[in-house]
Design a protein around this nucleic acid. Sequence first.
DNA 1: GAATATACGGAACGCTCGCCCCGGTTGTCC
DNA 2: GGACAACCGGGGCGAGCGTTCCGTATATTC
Lengths: 229, 229
Amino acid sequence: MTAMSEQPPAEQPPARSAGGGRPLRADARRNRARVLAAANEVFAAEGLAVPLDEIARRAGVGAGTVYRHFPTKEALFEAVVADRLEALTTVGREALAGITGGADPGEAFFGYLAVVVADAGSKMDLADALVGAGVDLRQDTLAAAAELRGVLGELLTQAQAAAAVRADVDVADVHAVVGAAVAAERTRPADAQPGRLARIIGDGLRTAQAAAGRAAARTSGNGGESAGN
Amino acid sequence: MTAMSEQPPAEQPPARSAGGGRPLRADARRNRARVLAAANEVFAAEGLAVPLDEIARRAGVGAGTVYRHFPTKEALFEAVVADRLEALTTVGREALAGITGGADPGEAFFGYLAVVVADAGSKMDLADALVGAGVDLRQDTLAAAAELRGVLGELLTQAQAAAAVRADVDVADVHAVVGAAVAAERTRPADAQPGRLARIIGDGLRTAQAAAGRAAARTSGNGGESAGN
DNA sequence: GAATATACGGAACGCTCGCCCCGGTTGTCC
DNA sequence: GGACAACCGGGGCGAGCGTTCCGTATATTC
């Protein structure tokens, strides 16, 4: 459905067959890229549940070829997810840079959360990975996740220092909350505007003062405190 | 692991084989009960993913027997879930009665949320059903869910009237938030105290005033605004 | 206690899906 | 352009699981 706007993940350096052999043959390199691209699409659209043959078919390749490049289905999945995580980490770093550049830490933090949730919302694989739906992460993916966690942690610290986020939560909490928001958005197909639930859930992280400020902004202009958000 | 304290679902009237035949044979009735009990345990412990043979084995029964009583695995699953939902609905009604008896609507509402999340946390099947993990609910389950939704809606209305819950959320939002909280609790195995994340996420539903009051209560006594909750 | 409908158990079936293998093809190097 | 190795495709194997079938056992009825 959606998803197609992925640039090929930064073009690996002439691609050696993992471990240190000689450079890959031209067609092998091309096929590997095709598989990766197809996996990106299909995993994003269907999540981990999609059969591997489907990916092979979409890549115009035999199943055997997929297995020559990725030892197992999970390995392929993780390669895709790791890419996604790295992309998100980059975005996070930008947000962080924005703060040192003078941006509001609270807005940076919550904006970033929104980005992550939105991204995971349109990439079922990411959602699966975040919610932990029967997925055991391995080395490389874990590394990518750890890095993202690091950036998230820095953003969190900044936002807490600015009293925009309550002080009694840690990175793990935030991570769980993100997973929760993703899950929530997932249960509610299309009727509501996207991001709404994520915002509600994320509001639980705010300090009371921040929440009050926000509510005031929301209320000024109409009589009650309905609508808006 | 847990789960065993379920009373047999109110003892169906001498159990007729759905549709209006003659009463079930004694052993049939007994086996049906066994299957249901085993399904309760196993689904609670493992979720929908558990193979049906396992349930049959635990019930001391052949697979064929299970299918004579429940046309499909999903039907059995739904029977179990519907029971759970009804139990939760009952608890909700009690909370509602408590309000008319003078209890604080906000506390009643959030207390009920905590109960639901805790229950779903220890019953993987409920969690699966709430999060919607590849489950298509059918008639009876839907009815039970609708009823629960009704009670939840009344509690919500009361809590909103008492200004404990922000006015711009509806039942569907609350339902989604519950699902989210369940998902969150699930991702984080055991390290933190249970219910913590659920509370954080639920806080997003509070009005600013209520949140402020809570934060004040949390802060009075120590210097910052850390710890507590 | 015999007759009969009813229910039981578990082997068997069909299907899906991850993964491997082998005969053929294609890129690469001299 | 020929020889050799690397790679490709897709059929096939085996495991897991939901569901069905049928010969046997058992409750019920008279």
